[in-house]
Design a protein around this nucleic acid. Sequence first.
DNA 1: CCTTCAATATGATTTAAATCACTTTTCGCG
DNA 2: CGCGAAAAGTGATTTAAATCATATTGAAGG
Lengths: 214, 214
Amino acid sequence: MNSLLQSISPGLKTTVVGSCSVRTFGEDQCVFTEGEKAEFLPIVSRGRIKLVRYPADGKEVIIGIFSEGEVFAIPPALDGKRFPATAVAMEASELLLLSRREFGRLMDESDEFKSAILDQMCGLLRDRTSSVQIHSTLSSEVRVGKVLLKLASGSRQGWPVRIALRRQDIAEMAGLATETAIRTIRKLADKELVRIVHGKIFIDSAGPLEDFVR
Amino acid sequence: MNSLLQSISPGLKTTVVGSCSVRTFGEDQCVFTEGEKAEFLPIVSRGRIKLVRYPADGKEVIIGIFSEGEVFAIPPALDGKRFPATAVAMEASELLLLSRREFGRLMDESDEFKSAILDQMCGLLRDRTSSVQIHSTLSSEVRVGKVLLKLASGSRQGWPVRIALRRQDIAEMAGLATETAIRTIRKLADKELVRIVHGKIFIDSAGPLEDFVR
DNA sequence: CCTTCAATATGATTTAAATCACTTTTCGCG
DNA sequence: CGCGAAAAGTGATTTAAATCATATTGAAGG
Protein backbone atom coordinates (compact mmCIF):
# COMPACT_ATOMS: atom_id res chain seq x y z
CA MET A 1 0.00 0.00 0.00
CA ASN A 2 1.28 3.42 -0.83
CA SER A 3 0.58 7.04 0.10
CA LEU A 4 -1.97 6.93 2.87
CA LEU A 5 -0.85 3.88 4.75
CA GLN A 6 2.79 4.45 4.02
CA SER A 7 2.57 7.84 5.57
CA ILE A 8 1.09 6.36 8.70
CA SER A 9 3.31 4.97 11.40
CA PRO A 10 3.49 1.15 11.61
CA GLY A 11 1.69 1.09 14.93
CA LEU A 12 -1.11 3.24 13.67
CA LYS A 13 -1.30 1.28 10.47
CA THR A 14 -2.11 -1.82 12.45
CA THR A 15 -4.76 0.14 14.29
CA VAL A 16 -6.30 1.33 11.05
CA VAL A 17 -6.30 -2.08 9.50
CA GLY A 18 -7.48 -3.68 12.70
CA SER A 19 -10.44 -1.42 13.25
CA CYS A 20 -12.12 -1.57 9.90
CA SER A 21 -13.69 -4.17 7.72
CA VAL A 22 -11.96 -5.46 4.65
CA ARG A 23 -14.21 -6.26 1.72
CA THR A 24 -13.51 -7.63 -1.72
CA PHE A 25 -15.38 -6.56 -4.83
CA GLY A 26 -15.64 -8.33 -8.16
CA GLU A 27 -15.38 -6.58 -11.51
CA ASP A 28 -18.29 -4.18 -12.05
CA GLN A 29 -19.45 -4.65 -8.49
CA CYS A 30 -20.80 -1.54 -6.85
CA VAL A 31 -19.11 -0.14 -3.74
CA PHE A 32 -21.70 2.55 -3.09
CA THR A 33 -24.38 4.35 -5.03
CA GLU A 34 -25.01 8.01 -5.72
CA GLY A 35 -27.43 9.41 -3.17
CA GLU A 36 -26.64 6.80 -0.54
CA LYS A 37 -25.64 8.10 2.88
CA ALA A 38 -21.96 7.68 3.64
CA GLU A 39 -21.30 5.26 6.48
CA PHE A 40 -17.62 4.63 5.87
CA LEU A 41 -14.40 5.89 4.35
CA PRO A 42 -13.21 3.65 1.50
CA ILE A 43 -9.49 2.98 1.17
CA VAL A 44 -8.29 0.98 -1.82
CA SER A 45 -5.95 -1.79 -0.75
CA ARG A 46 -5.97 -3.68 -4.06
CA GLY A 47 -7.43 -3.15 -7.53
CA ARG A 48 -9.04 -0.16 -9.15
CA ILE A 49 -12.25 1.69 -8.33
CA LYS A 50 -14.00 4.16 -10.62
CA LEU A 51 -16.22 6.96 -9.44
CA VAL A 52 -18.98 7.46 -12.01
CA ARG A 53 -22.18 9.30 -12.79
CA TYR A 54 -24.99 8.47 -15.18
CA PRO A 55 -26.15 11.82 -16.56
CA ALA A 56 -28.62 10.05 -18.87
CA ASP A 57 -29.42 6.45 -19.33
CA GLY A 58 -26.87 4.57 -21.36
CA LYS A 59 -24.47 7.44 -20.73
CA GLU A 60 -21.70 7.11 -18.15
CA VAL A 61 -19.07 9.59 -17.05
CA ILE A 62 -15.97 8.69 -15.08
CA ILE A 63 -15.18 11.31 -12.46
CA GLY A 64 -12.16 9.59 -10.94
CA ILE A 65 -10.21 6.36 -10.80
CA PHE A 66 -8.56 5.22 -7.58
CA SER A 67 -5.82 2.67 -7.11
CA GLU A 68 -4.05 0.95 -4.27
CA GLY A 69 -3.35 3.22 -1.32
CA GLU A 70 -5.81 5.89 -2.38
CA VAL A 71 -8.76 7.11 -0.38
CA PHE A 72 -11.87 8.63 -1.91
CA ALA A 73 -15.24 10.12 -0.96
CA ILE A 74 -13.66 11.95 1.96
CA PRO A 75 -16.19 14.79 2.26
CA PRO A 76 -19.24 12.50 2.60
CA ALA A 77 -17.33 10.23 4.98
CA LEU A 78 -16.47 13.21 7.14
CA ASP A 79 -19.98 14.53 7.55
CA GLY A 80 -22.17 11.54 6.70
CA LYS A 81 -23.94 13.30 3.82
CA ARG A 82 -24.87 11.55 0.58
CA PHE A 83 -22.34 10.29 -1.97
CA PRO A 84 -22.40 12.57 -5.02
CA ALA A 85 -21.57 9.69 -7.37
CA THR A 86 -21.42 5.93 -7.65
CA ALA A 87 -18.29 3.83 -7.06
CA VAL A 88 -17.74 0.66 -9.07
CA ALA A 89 -14.84 -1.82 -9.07
CA MET A 90 -13.11 -1.91 -12.46
CA GLU A 91 -11.42 -5.20 -11.61
CA ALA A 92 -11.25 -7.56 -8.66
CA SER A 93 -10.49 -5.21 -5.78
CA GLU A 94 -10.11 -5.05 -2.05
CA LEU A 95 -11.15 -2.11 0.07
CA LEU A 96 -10.75 -1.19 3.69
CA LEU A 97 -14.00 0.36 4.84
CA LEU A 98 -13.31 2.56 7.82
CA SER A 99 -16.50 3.35 9.71
CA ARG A 100 -17.29 7.03 10.08
CA ARG A 101 -17.01 6.64 13.82
CA GLU A 102 -13.47 5.26 13.60
CA PHE A 103 -12.61 7.76 10.92
CA GLY A 104 -13.66 10.59 13.20
CA ARG A 105 -11.73 9.14 16.09
CA LEU A 106 -8.57 8.79 14.04
CA MET A 107 -8.91 12.31 12.73
CA ASP A 108 -9.19 13.61 16.28
CA GLU A 109 -6.53 11.48 17.84
CA SER A 110 -3.85 11.11 15.24
CA ASP A 111 -2.21 14.12 13.77
CA GLU A 112 -0.33 11.90 11.40
CA PHE A 113 -3.54 10.41 10.10
CA LYS A 114 -5.07 13.83 9.68
CA SER A 115 -2.06 14.94 7.68
CA ALA A 116 -2.29 11.85 5.49
CA ILE A 117 -5.96 12.61 4.79
CA LEU A 118 -5.12 16.21 4.02
CA ASP A 119 -2.50 15.00 1.61
CA GLN A 120 -4.99 12.72 -0.09
CA MET A 121 -7.46 15.55 -0.37
CA CYS A 122 -4.84 17.68 -2.09
CA GLY A 123 -4.45 14.96 -4.66
CA LEU A 124 -8.18 14.62 -5.10
CA LEU A 125 -8.63 18.35 -5.49
CA ARG A 126 -5.87 18.57 -8.08
CA ASP A 127 -7.30 15.65 -9.97
CA ARG A 128 -10.79 17.10 -9.89
CA THR A 129 -9.56 20.46 -11.12
CA SER A 130 -7.85 18.74 -13.99
CA SER A 131 -11.11 16.92 -14.75
CA VAL A 132 -12.96 20.20 -14.94
CA GLN A 133 -10.29 21.43 -17.33
CA ILE A 134 -10.64 18.34 -19.47
CA HIS A 135 -14.41 18.56 -19.67
CA SER A 136 -14.42 22.26 -20.33
CA THR A 137 -11.92 22.05 -23.15
CA LEU A 138 -13.52 22.46 -26.51
CA SER A 139 -11.58 20.29 -28.95
CA SER A 140 -11.92 16.55 -28.63
CA GLU A 141 -8.25 16.11 -29.48
CA VAL A 142 -7.11 18.18 -26.55
CA ARG A 143 -9.61 16.47 -24.26
CA VAL A 144 -8.42 13.00 -25.16
CA GLY A 145 -4.82 14.19 -25.06
CA LYS A 146 -5.26 15.46 -21.53
CA VAL A 147 -6.92 12.25 -20.42
CA LEU A 148 -4.10 10.15 -21.86
CA LEU A 149 -1.52 12.40 -20.26
CA LYS A 150 -3.22 12.09 -16.91
CA LEU A 151 -3.34 8.33 -17.24
CA ALA A 152 0.27 8.15 -18.34
CA SER A 153 1.58 10.35 -15.54
CA GLY A 154 -0.43 8.44 -13.00
CA SER A 155 1.08 5.17 -14.11
CA ARG A 156 3.69 3.49 -11.99
CA GLN A 157 5.99 2.18 -14.73
CA GLY A 158 8.35 4.18 -16.89
CA TRP A 159 8.18 5.13 -20.56
CA PRO A 160 6.77 4.06 -22.90
CA VAL A 161 3.50 3.82 -21.04
CA ARG A 162 0.83 1.40 -22.17
CA ILE A 163 -2.64 2.78 -21.48
CA ALA A 164 -4.55 0.14 -19.55
CA LEU A 165 -8.03 1.41 -20.35
CA ARG A 166 -10.48 0.70 -23.13
CA ARG A 167 -11.56 3.38 -25.61
CA GLN A 168 -14.89 3.43 -23.87
CA ASP A 169 -13.30 4.31 -20.52
CA ILE A 170 -11.22 7.03 -22.11
CA ALA A 171 -14.35 8.36 -23.77
CA GLU A 172 -16.12 8.42 -20.42
CA MET A 173 -13.25 10.28 -18.82
CA ALA A 174 -13.18 12.82 -21.64
CA GLY A 175 -16.96 13.15 -21.78
CA LEU A 176 -17.14 11.97 -25.37
CA ALA A 177 -18.89 9.21 -27.30
CA THR A 178 -16.82 6.05 -27.70
CA GLU A 179 -16.66 6.42 -31.50
CA THR A 180 -15.45 9.98 -31.15
CA ALA A 181 -12.75 8.89 -28.74
CA ILE A 182 -11.64 6.17 -31.16
CA ARG A 183 -11.45 8.58 -34.10
CA THR A 184 -9.69 11.17 -31.96
CA ILE A 185 -7.08 8.72 -30.72
CA ARG A 186 -6.40 7.80 -34.35
CA LYS A 187 -5.87 11.46 -35.14
CA LEU A 188 -3.42 11.73 -32.26
CA ALA A 189 -1.64 8.67 -33.63
CA ASP A 190 -1.50 10.29 -37.08
CA LYS A 191 0.15 13.26 -35.42
CA GLU A 192 2.57 10.79 -33.81
CA LEU A 193 1.65 11.90 -30.31
CA VAL A 194 0.72 8.33 -29.40
CA ARG A 195 1.27 4.93 -30.97
CA ILE A 196 -1.40 2.30 -31.53
CA VAL A 197 -0.17 -1.28 -31.56
CA HIS A 198 -2.81 -3.99 -31.88
CA GLY A 199 -5.35 -1.53 -30.62
CA LYS A 200 -3.35 -0.78 -27.47
CA ILE A 201 -2.28 2.81 -26.92
CA PHE A 202 1.35 3.58 -26.15
CA ILE A 203 2.84 6.89 -25.17
CA ASP A 204 6.58 7.14 -25.62
CA SER A 205 7.06 10.32 -23.67
CA ALA A 206 4.96 13.07 -22.16
CA GLY A 207 6.69 15.94 -23.95
CA PRO A 208 4.99 16.10 -27.34
CA LEU A 209 1.55 15.48 -25.87
CA GLU A 210 2.11 18.14 -23.23
CA ASP A 211 3.06 20.63 -25.91
CA PHE A 212 -0.02 19.66 -27.87
CA VAL A 213 -2.53 20.11 -25.06
CA ARG A 214 -0.61 23.29 -24.26
CA MET B 1 -15.49 36.88 7.69
CA ASN B 2 -17.11 33.53 7.82
CA SER B 3 -16.08 29.86 7.78
CA LEU B 4 -12.32 29.88 7.95
CA LEU B 5 -11.71 32.76 10.26
CA GLN B 6 -14.83 32.15 12.27
CA SER B 7 -13.67 28.67 13.01
CA ILE B 8 -10.37 30.01 14.27
CA SER B 9 -10.01 31.21 17.83
CA PRO B 10 -9.92 34.99 18.33
CA GLY B 11 -6.30 34.88 19.41
CA LEU B 12 -5.27 32.90 16.42
CA LYS B 13 -7.35 35.05 14.14
CA THR B 14 -5.31 38.04 15.19
CA THR B 15 -2.18 36.04 14.52
CA VAL B 16 -3.37 35.10 11.05
CA VAL B 17 -4.39 38.59 10.17
CA GLY B 18 -1.26 40.02 11.73
CA SER B 19 1.19 37.79 9.91
CA CYS B 20 0.05 38.19 6.36
CA SER B 21 -0.30 40.93 3.85
CA VAL B 22 -3.67 42.38 2.96
CA ARG B 23 -4.08 43.42 -0.65
CA THR B 24 -6.94 44.98 -2.52
CA PHE B 25 -7.81 44.16 -6.10
CA GLY B 26 -9.90 46.15 -8.55
CA GLU B 27 -12.47 44.58 -10.87
CA ASP B 28 -10.83 42.31 -13.44
CA GLN B 29 -7.48 42.58 -11.70
CA CYS B 30 -5.47 39.42 -11.66
CA VAL B 31 -4.53 37.77 -8.33
CA PHE B 32 -2.31 35.11 -9.84
CA THR B 33 -1.80 33.49 -13.20
CA GLU B 34 -1.94 29.90 -14.37
CA GLY B 35 1.53 28.39 -14.33
CA GLU B 36 2.90 30.83 -11.74
CA LYS B 37 4.53 29.29 -8.71
CA ALA B 38 2.45 29.57 -5.56
CA GLU B 39 4.02 31.79 -2.92
CA PHE B 40 1.00 32.38 -0.74
CA LEU B 41 -2.41 31.13 0.36
CA PRO B 42 -5.18 33.52 -0.70
CA ILE B 43 -8.07 34.12 1.70
CA VAL B 44 -10.96 36.28 0.53
CA SER B 45 -11.81 38.91 3.09
CA ARG B 46 -14.06 41.01 0.84
CA GLY B 47 -15.46 40.73 -2.67
CA ARG B 48 -15.53 37.87 -5.14
CA ILE B 49 -12.70 36.07 -6.90
CA LYS B 50 -13.14 33.80 -9.90
CA LEU B 51 -10.78 30.99 -10.80
CA VAL B 52 -10.63 30.71 -14.58
CA ARG B 53 -8.94 29.01 -17.49
CA TYR B 54 -8.58 30.05 -21.10
CA PRO B 55 -8.81 26.82 -23.12
CA ALA B 56 -8.62 28.79 -26.37
CA ASP B 57 -8.27 32.45 -27.02
CA GLY B 58 -11.47 34.38 -26.58
CA LYS B 59 -12.81 31.41 -24.64
CA GLU B 60 -12.96 31.50 -20.85
CA VAL B 61 -14.16 28.89 -18.36
CA ILE B 62 -14.96 29.61 -14.74
CA ILE B 63 -13.77 26.80 -12.48
CA GLY B 64 -14.83 28.34 -9.20
CA ILE B 65 -16.02 31.53 -7.53
CA PHE B 66 -14.92 32.41 -4.01
CA SER B 67 -16.46 34.87 -1.60
CA GLU B 68 -15.70 36.36 1.78
CA GLY B 69 -14.20 33.87 4.21
CA GLU B 70 -13.25 31.34 1.58
CA VAL B 71 -9.78 30.07 0.87
CA PHE B 72 -8.68 28.73 -2.49
CA ALA B 73 -5.65 27.28 -4.27
CA ILE B 74 -4.75 25.23 -1.21
CA PRO B 75 -2.81 22.44 -2.95
CA PRO B 76 -0.34 24.78 -4.68
CA ALA B 77 0.02 26.85 -1.52
CA LEU B 78 0.84 23.71 0.44
CA ASP B 79 3.60 22.45 -1.81
CA GLY B 80 4.63 25.54 -3.77
CA LYS B 81 3.84 24.01 -7.15
CA ARG B 82 2.28 25.96 -10.00
CA PHE B 83 -1.27 27.33 -9.96
CA PRO B 84 -3.43 25.26 -12.32
CA ALA B 85 -5.60 28.24 -13.23
CA THR B 86 -5.81 32.02 -13.09
CA ALA B 87 -7.56 34.00 -10.36
CA VAL B 88 -9.28 37.29 -11.20
CA ALA B 89 -11.28 39.67 -9.04
CA MET B 90 -14.89 39.94 -10.22
CA GLU B 91 -15.42 43.12 -8.24
CA ALA B 92 -13.39 45.30 -5.87
CA SER B 93 -12.00 42.75 -3.44
CA GLU B 94 -9.66 42.34 -0.53
CA LEU B 95 -7.50 39.30 0.06
CA LEU B 96 -5.29 38.13 2.86
CA LEU B 97 -2.20 36.62 1.32
CA LEU B 98 -0.67 34.21 3.79
CA SER B 99 2.91 33.39 2.86
CA ARG B 100 3.65 29.72 2.34
CA ARG B 101 6.05 29.87 5.24
CA GLU B 102 3.42 31.18 7.62
CA PHE B 103 0.85 28.81 6.15
CA GLY B 104 3.11 25.88 6.88
CA ARG B 105 3.81 27.10 10.38
CA LEU B 106 0.11 27.51 11.15
CA MET B 107 -0.64 24.08 9.77
CA ASP B 108 1.99 22.58 12.02
CA GLU B 109 1.24 24.55 15.13
CA SER B 110 -2.49 25.00 15.17
CA ASP B 111 -4.76 22.05 15.09
CA GLU B 112 -7.70 24.36 14.85
CA PHE B 113 -6.27 26.00 11.77
CA LYS B 114 -5.56 22.65 10.20
CA SER B 115 -9.13 21.61 10.80
CA ALA B 116 -10.42 24.82 9.28
CA ILE B 117 -8.30 24.20 6.18
CA LEU B 118 -9.53 20.64 5.99
CA ASP B 119 -13.06 21.92 6.18
CA GLN B 120 -12.41 24.37 3.37
CA MET B 121 -10.92 21.62 1.27
CA CYS B 122 -14.05 19.54 1.72
CA GLY B 123 -16.06 22.41 0.36
CA LEU B 124 -13.69 22.86 -2.54
CA LEU B 125 -13.73 19.18 -3.36
CA ARG B 126 -17.52 19.04 -3.29
CA ASP B 127 -17.75 22.11 -5.45
CA ARG B 128 -15.25 20.75 -7.94
CA THR B 129 -17.07 17.45 -8.16
CA SER B 130 -20.27 19.31 -8.89
CA SER B 131 -18.42 21.25 -11.60
CA VAL B 132 -17.33 18.02 -13.24
CA GLN B 133 -20.93 16.88 -13.16
CA ILE B 134 -22.11 20.11 -14.72
CA HIS B 135 -19.57 20.00 -17.52
CA SER B 136 -20.13 16.34 -18.22
CA THR B 137 -23.88 16.68 -18.46
CA LEU B 138 -25.09 16.52 -22.02
CA SER B 139 -28.12 18.80 -22.28
CA SER B 140 -27.54 22.52 -22.04
CA GLU B 141 -30.75 22.93 -20.08
CA VAL B 142 -29.57 20.65 -17.31
CA ARG B 143 -26.14 22.27 -17.33
CA VAL B 144 -27.53 25.76 -16.91
CA GLY B 145 -30.06 24.47 -14.40
CA LYS B 146 -27.31 22.99 -12.26
CA VAL B 147 -25.26 26.17 -12.43
CA LEU B 148 -28.23 28.28 -11.36
CA LEU B 149 -29.01 25.86 -8.57
CA LYS B 150 -25.44 26.01 -7.34
CA LEU B 151 -25.48 29.80 -7.43
CA ALA B 152 -28.84 29.94 -5.68
CA SER B 153 -27.89 27.54 -2.91
CA GLY B 154 -24.60 29.34 -2.38
CA SER B 155 -26.38 32.62 -1.89
CA ARG B 156 -26.73 34.10 1.56
CA GLN B 157 -30.26 35.54 1.29
CA GLY B 158 -33.52 33.62 1.29
CA TRP B 159 -35.96 32.92 -1.54
CA PRO B 160 -36.58 34.16 -4.09
CA VAL B 161 -32.91 34.35 -5.06
CA ARG B 162 -31.74 36.91 -7.57
CA ILE B 163 -28.80 35.58 -9.61
CA ALA B 164 -26.02 38.12 -9.39
CA LEU B 165 -24.12 37.02 -12.48
CA ARG B 166 -24.29 37.97 -16.13
CA ARG B 167 -25.35 35.51 -18.82
CA GLN B 168 -21.72 35.40 -19.91
CA ASP B 169 -20.56 34.25 -16.47
CA ILE B 170 -23.24 31.59 -16.32
CA ALA B 171 -22.20 30.44 -19.79
CA GLU B 172 -18.59 30.23 -18.63
CA MET B 173 -19.58 28.19 -15.60
CA ALA B 174 -21.67 25.84 -17.73
CA GLY B 175 -19.08 25.60 -20.49
CA LEU B 176 -21.42 27.04 -23.10
CA ALA B 177 -21.44 29.97 -25.51
CA THR B 178 -23.11 33.09 -24.15
CA GLU B 179 -25.89 32.95 -26.76
CA THR B 180 -26.61 29.34 -25.90
CA ALA B 181 -26.83 30.22 -22.23
CA ILE B 182 -29.26 33.06 -23.01
CA ARG B 183 -31.48 30.82 -25.12
CA THR B 184 -31.32 28.06 -22.53
CA ILE B 185 -32.24 30.36 -19.67
CA ARG B 186 -35.24 31.49 -21.73
CA LYS B 187 -36.29 27.87 -22.13
CA LEU B 188 -36.02 27.35 -18.37
CA ALA B 189 -38.18 30.44 -17.91
CA ASP B 190 -40.75 29.05 -20.39
CA LYS B 191 -40.85 25.94 -18.22
CA GLU B 192 -41.36 28.24 -15.22
CA LEU B 193 -38.27 26.93 -13.45
CA VAL B 194 -36.88 30.46 -13.23
CA ARG B 195 -38.28 33.94 -13.75
CA ILE B 196 -36.71 36.66 -15.84
CA VAL B 197 -37.52 40.21 -14.81
CA HIS B 198 -35.78 42.98 -16.71
CA GLY B 199 -33.12 40.50 -17.73
CA LYS B 200 -32.40 39.52 -14.14
CA ILE B 201 -32.87 35.89 -13.22
CA PHE B 202 -34.95 34.98 -10.19
CA ILE B 203 -35.42 31.56 -8.66
CA ASP B 204 -38.42 31.27 -6.37
CA SER B 205 -37.48 27.95 -4.85
CA ALA B 206 -35.00 25.16 -5.42
CA GLY B 207 -37.57 22.36 -5.66
CA PRO B 208 -38.72 22.47 -9.28
CA LEU B 209 -35.22 23.08 -10.60
CA GLU B 210 -33.84 20.25 -8.48
CA ASP B 211 -36.46 17.90 -9.89
CA PHE B 212 -35.60 19.08 -13.37
CA VAL B 213 -31.84 18.53 -13.13
CA ARG B 214 -32.75 15.28 -11.38
C1' DC C 1 -6.06 -23.83 -34.55
C1' DC C 2 -10.40 -22.32 -34.86
C1' DT C 3 -14.35 -20.29 -32.53
C1' DT C 4 -16.40 -16.56 -30.27
C1' DC C 5 -17.14 -12.29 -28.14
C1' DA C 6 -15.68 -7.97 -26.97
C1' DA C 7 -13.24 -4.15 -28.48
C1' DT C 8 -11.88 -1.38 -32.21
C1' DA C 9 -12.81 0.71 -36.48
C1' DT C 10 -15.26 3.25 -40.16
C1' DG C 11 -18.98 5.36 -42.97
C1' DA C 12 -23.41 7.95 -43.35
C1' DT C 13 -26.65 10.83 -41.20
C1' DT C 14 -28.65 13.68 -37.67
C1' DT C 15 -28.48 17.05 -34.28
C1' DA C 16 -27.31 20.43 -31.00
C1' DA C 17 -24.46 23.95 -29.99
C1' DA C 18 -20.97 27.42 -31.79
C1' DT C 19 -20.50 31.14 -34.50
C1' DC C 20 -21.63 35.35 -36.88
C1' DA C 21 -24.29 39.26 -37.57
C1' DC C 22 -27.39 42.18 -35.83
C1' DT C 23 -31.34 44.37 -32.81
C1' DT C 24 -33.32 45.56 -28.50
C1' DT C 25 -33.29 46.36 -23.66
C1' DT C 26 -31.47 47.89 -19.42
C1' DC C 27 -29.20 50.92 -16.48
C1' DG C 28 -25.87 54.24 -14.78
C1' DC C 29 -24.71 58.96 -15.25
C1' DG C 30 -23.83 63.72 -16.95
C1' DC D 1 -34.33 62.99 -18.95
C1' DG D 2 -31.94 61.25 -22.60
C1' DC D 3 -27.31 59.55 -23.90
C1' DG D 4 -24.23 55.73 -24.35
C1' DA D 5 -22.30 51.50 -23.20
C1' DA D 6 -22.94 46.96 -21.69
C1' DA D 7 -25.84 43.24 -21.45
C1' DA D 8 -29.58 40.60 -23.27
C1' DG D 9 -31.93 38.79 -27.01
C1' DT D 10 -32.76 36.85 -31.86
C1' DG D 11 -32.15 34.77 -36.48
C1' DA D 12 -29.34 32.36 -40.02
C1' DT D 13 -25.60 29.47 -40.90
C1' DT D 14 -21.78 26.46 -39.95
C1' DT D 15 -19.62 22.86 -37.64
C1' DA D 16 -18.26 19.23 -34.72
C1' DA D 17 -19.71 15.57 -32.25
C1' DA D 18 -23.54 12.15 -31.32
C1' DT D 19 -25.85 8.60 -33.18
C1' DC D 20 -26.83 4.63 -36.00
C1' DA D 21 -25.34 0.95 -38.71
C1' DT D 22 -22.15 -2.31 -39.76
C1' DA D 23 -17.55 -4.21 -40.53
C1' DT D 24 -13.02 -5.70 -38.85
C1' DT D 25 -9.71 -6.98 -35.54
C1' DG D 26 -7.85 -9.01 -31.36
C1' DA D 27 -7.48 -12.00 -27.51
C1' DA D 28 -9.04 -15.92 -24.54
C1' DG D 29 -10.48 -20.51 -24.25
C1' DG D 30 -11.94 -24.93 -25.77
